[in-house]
Design a protein around this nucleic acid. Sequence first.
DNA 1: TTCGTTGCGTAACGCTATAACGTCGGATAT
DNA 2: ATATCCGACGTTATAGCGTTACGCAACGAA
Lengths: 132, 132
Amino acid sequence: MSAQHDLTKNQEMVLGALSAADGPLSAYTILDRLRDRGFRAPLQVYRALDKLLDYGLIHRLESINSFVACAHPQCHGHGSIAFAICEKCGQVEEFSDAMVQQHLSERSRERGFKPSKTVIEIRGTCAACLAA
Amino acid sequence: MSAQHDLTKNQEMVLGALSAADGPLSAYTILDRLRDRGFRAPLQVYRALDKLLDYGLIHRLESINSFVACAHPQCHGHGSIAFAICEKCGQVEEFSDAMVQQHLSERSRERGFKPSKTVIEIRGTCAACLAA
DNA sequence: TTCGTTGCGTAACGCTATAACGTCGGATAT
DNA sequence: ATATCCGACGTTATAGCGTTACGCAACGAA
Ligand SMILES: [Zn+2]
Ligand SMILES: [Zn+2]
Ligand SMILES: [Zn+2]
Ligand SMILES: [Zn+2]
């Protein structure tokens, strides 16, 4: 599961781009940033993203079609993570809440629903942008 | 806010398509289903969807780029609604959980984040598909 | 060797959403 | 009434997101 995955060159470059960024990036933005490193086609990015998602090194933000490096790799089990996404500056905070997880899986179980992945994305305005 | 909005012809047709469907529809699927009623372009659908979202008559499912008629119009305040989306059959169940809402807004407030819209989408397998 | 698996490169395509234009008709004001 | 404004509409084109399909190369297992 977490045997310090050997990343391929492409995967490392994509992860590097996401880690270097100060916020989430779309696949095509990643592509543009890696063009001078040899990237030419969307698929190169998407294939790397798929693996990095598998490995739990990055997350996909469904509501903005973007990707972000995991803030706590090794740390959380990636059960259900929540994201606070600032609509002003684009910053994202990643956190997890056991209570929320528990309630949601309980509500799921009640109706016989077996969850595989839970998306929790809170859109709004971050503290910094509120202060400004 | 909820003065039984007068829907335009396009808006009624789009809402009708969503209500008649047995699951969420993409904008382009709606377009196809309304072609013989005069629809020709995506924008006709998207403009109607925008209004219907404003009015709270439909919801957007961010993780599958689709739209669904609200299961409880008039009933809930559309603060934070959760959706259980079956990946086998496509059925969606809409529900809201005060506990989850409360915890999430508390966690938001802790970090000075002001939420505007909360997305909660649980992907998985529904009871019917599990039984099958 | 042979075969299956995995990653890679390229091209083409399909799906999702918006921009930019002009038009029309109903409401309001003078 | 006439001028004006505004919201919805129709059309075309374009931007942005994601996948299919093909072939090739490397590697390890049988
Ligand atoms: Zn994470
Ligand atoms: Zn911000
Ligand atoms: Zn609803
Ligand atoms: Zn199902």
